[in-house]
Nucleic acid binder design. Structure first.
Lengths: 107, 107
DNA sequence: TTAATATATTGCAATATTACGATAATAAAT
DNA sequence: ATTTATTATCGTAATATTGCAATATATTAA
């Protein structure tokens, strides 16, 4: 991404940016939407669903996991992934909060 | 960002990813927070507020504007920027919607 | 018109992301 | 132990992002 001066910003700003960056890719949005539809699934299901190779999906899942957007639990020889509801609620509240703060303001 | 197969995804997925990618940088989160605090401001105010050079701020503002997160209106020799409340409400509703869909599900 | 002010654009170096083939690691089944 | 199935990691090429100095553009003031 180039030189990012993350040290210059607050912890809160960096955390929010990290989560949003993780969701800032159509493949990862698609993974989230698929997980929302099927509730839980294994990596192979997503590989069958999206037009991307298995290592690419694995990499995207890793980023979503690092950002705490999904979690994966080992289940036999596969890994069961699902969405982290807390994170969606947290981000949703942030945006709604901004939205409400803007309500009485003109532009 | 590398090769992104945006053609493989839906319009909706690409649009959401674009907005979130635009907010997925601490400097742009900081700009949004500053705009939330001061309501409206000119580019120079942000240059004074953040530890980044003027061309860098200008570039970040351009990305936020392209993603329809802020809007700028020419006002004399400066440009008055402010947040686009519709976008925050829209994104907020999306996340809250996901959050509500996940409410009864276990993981 | 000239100078001053404010913002945008260009060009470039440093770094990050994306995608995938090849391969490794892990666990279950035979 | 070997095979099979599932996911992760490595290496690498192509591309995108970030940041800034230099410069251009645009508007106001003198």
């Amino acid at each position: 991404m180039g030189i990012t001066k993350s040290a210059s910003f607050t912890e809160e700003q960096n955390e929010l940016a990290n989560v949003l960056k993780a969701l800032g890719h159509p493949a990862r949005v698609a993974i989230v939407q698929y997980l929302l539809k099927v509730d839980t699934c294994i990596c192979g299901d997503i590989v069958n669903e999206l037009p991307l190779a298995q290592p690419t999906i694995s990499q995207h899942l890793k980023e979503l996991k690092n950002a705490n957007i999904i979690q994966g639990t080992i289940e036999g020889k596969s890994i069961c992934y699902c969405l982290n509801k807390e994170m969606f609620s947290k981000v949703g509240r942030y945006f709604m909060g901004v939205s409400i703060s803007l309500e009485n303001k003109c532009c």
